[in-house]
Nucleic acid binder design. Structure first.
Lengths: 159, 159
DNA sequence: CTTAAATAAATTGCACACAATCTAATAACA
DNA sequence: TGTTATTAGATTGTGTGCAATTTATTTAAG
């Protein structure tokens, strides 16, 4: 089973330039996946999946959020969000109720249990610190570059 | 539908420190998802999904790869990889064959069609450049920080 | 006022992603 | 040598993630 034998031995300059975009997108993909993976076990202990955790974090920060608003904040559409919120309701962390003034909206509300979960979840963020091995400055830089990229993509997506 | 009203008005210092870990993990999650989203349409044109593209990129770089080796390189286990590779085989881009010397291994081999696809895919990486709005230096920094983080996670994962 | 357009959720179908388990093949060792 | 342990892939079950469609409600236009 040969390893690391390059097929296209002599990579052209063009190749090299194109490579960066792909490598960046791969690093992003892999890094996000690995980070989610290390969060999995700690989250399991408090009864959340990663996606459910993202939703709960949003609810811990803001109140009176409609499903639509949550989705906009965490980049998820109703196809993903509806079942996630329903599961959170089943676990007793949130309640869902239609808004009286506009029955199209579903308001998602923290329950007492959901609010209490915030304390249990307080040690979760340390998971990343213990595993990522970046200095504080590096972490800040990474964070701000990711947000800048995210903002760029959000503004004008021309595929 | 109230927006941006913080429930826990007075965030403690502790909160602030913990917040960074969570925000970083969220930015990673969101950014990776958005990048995959903008790759979707261009990839669809050449008949690949994002995951299939990652596998093909790996095969364009190396030859004689077993499923195991591919999985290690792109952080995927057989549960994900087996069906993806089978789909690539169905599309005619790769062939799968058991290794004679050790029947446990499946060797994944590019077909003529799979090799030719590399040229069609040559414009794909520009997708990111057109959408991410980072300078060359920023892109390089982001890339290296992601790889450093990835390496850190890979070395010793203590959850 | 009535029909048409717009909007928020829900539903459906397809493609991952991964833990857990199973199967088959090889390696290790008593 | 025969049994056990290890290993690579395949399978199964659960949970996203998203495009496309549907449903219910509200708004806009004529």
């Amino acid at each position: 089973m040969g390893t690391s034998k390059e097929i296209m031995g002599n990579a052209t300059n063009d190749d090299a330039i194109l490579k960066l975009g792909n490598e960046l997108c791969f690093s992003l993909y892999a890094c996000a996946k690995e980070v989610i993976r290390i969060y999995r076990k700690p989250l399991e202990k408090i009864g959340l999946t990663y996606t459910q955790y993202i939703v709960m974090m949003t609810l811990w920060q803001f109140c009176d959020m409609s499903a639509k608003e949550i989705g906009k904040k965490i980049y998820l559409d109703s196809g993903t969000l509806t079942p996630v919120i329903k599961k959170l309701e089943k676990s007793g962390f949130v309640k869902r109720q239609r808004v009286v003034e506009d029955e199209r909206f579903v308001k998602v509300i923290l329950t007492e249990k959901g609010l209490k979960l915030k304390e249990k979840a307080s040690t979760i963020p340390q998971t990343l610190e213990r595993n990522i091995y970046l200095s504080y400055d590096e972490t800040m830089t990474l964070h701000s570059l990711l947000n800048k990229a995210l903002k760029g993509i959000k503004e004008g997506t021309k595929i």
